[in-house]
Design a protein around this nucleic acid. Sequence first.
DNA 1: TTTTTATTACCTGATATCAGGTAAAAGCAG
DNA 2: CTGCTTTTACCTGATATCAGGTAATAAAAA
Lengths: 209, 209
Amino acid sequence: MVYKTVIVDDHPIVISGIAGLLSDLENIKIVEKFESGIVLLDYIEDNTVDLILMDIFLPVINGVDLCKTIKQKHPKIVIIGMSSQSERSLVMQFIQNGGNGYILKNASFDEFKNCIYKAIDGEIVFSEEVKTIISQPLSEELERIPALSRRERDIALLLSQGKSTQEIADDLFLSFLTVQTHRRNILQKYKMKNVAELIAFLLKNNMLN
Amino acid sequence: MVYKTVIVDDHPIVISGIAGLLSDLENIKIVEKFESGIVLLDYIEDNTVDLILMDIFLPVINGVDLCKTIKQKHPKIVIIGMSSQSERSLVMQFIQNGGNGYILKNASFDEFKNCIYKAIDGEIVFSEEVKTIISQPLSEELERIPALSRRERDIALLLSQGKSTQEIADDLFLSFLTVQTHRRNILQKYKMKNVAELIAFLLKNNMLN
DNA sequence: TTTTTATTACCTGATATCAGGTAAAAGCAG
DNA sequence: CTGCTTTTACCTGATATCAGGTAATAAAAA
């Protein structure tokens, strides 16, 4: 079987580079190249596509939303995201929105080739550097961040569920004033302005649940 | 090379089941079986371990935290998470904390085998059902959830950064009262009690960024 | 073109949060 | 056993949020 492949990138140079790399691959046939996601959406309505390689940073519509939209209508199309630099949360978001893999553009020809074949085979794939990015926080971020105490975690969790100070006090059989103290301590510990920023911070750092 | 493997699960029956499955594999040698994460942490300080298969729902310390702790000191150990049922966010959290793969316990022998070999080979692997779980929201959740309008998204983003109504108004060159209206509309749209719950909701559903 | 949705804006009052200071009892670690 | 951290608790005042209602303009969809 030959996989009909589309490349989407707003840099023509990158398109031709990738096209060159892929031209060697037997069962990958590049049928179209686009510089915009909107045009791609039109195209896949009228044409069969098996594989899409797309830049994540696109004008108008970003890669994550584009991927989501495509997968809703065409779940069988294999979509691999690409970018020059990246960060953990972006990669995870892309995968959560249906992406089948993520490759950094500095990946070697072999990496590209392997990732593409494995993705077609139904796996979720990452290029080497992406793998290290995904499990990065272990060495840097997390060591600097102080942990929540048990009680603080309880309270933060209830805060994330929309509970007020009074409701939390009732839930945990504490005084209103005690919960207030904990709240203040948590905000000070992480130098946050208010609960909104706090919850965002805690969730992004996986410190709740 | 033979991979020294440890199984951690609080159900003895599951341990023996997995041990049985793995006993056929050539270069996988099970050196220990634990029912608790704490004991495992002690063990790996004094012994060489190459591969860990761990249940995610463990007493005392959960699998995600256990994985994080192990990877901080021993990044080279390959860790695969397992559970009977699972949800998207849990799998993503496990991977973000250094996990090399995730398998549902109902996976076939072949799936187990393939995932383990690929993980050892440096890949991040998921069993079939996990893959479907990861990219699920496309069909169910997301269609029910109304989208944020552009302006609402701007405001929600600034809220998640700890900005007050007045600061947001200044940032976006709007009236304080306008921002207040948007805030109320967003809360009503998703039936949230306050910003804390809202931010938690939006982040969990990838509706910010 | 009409209708709907989005964006902008104002007013009021009740309630909640945030920041300041203070402090005692319990639990853990050196 | 003696510090250190955690958890508990109280007081006050300034500021912010939330909920109620109302409404005009602009933009997009029907």
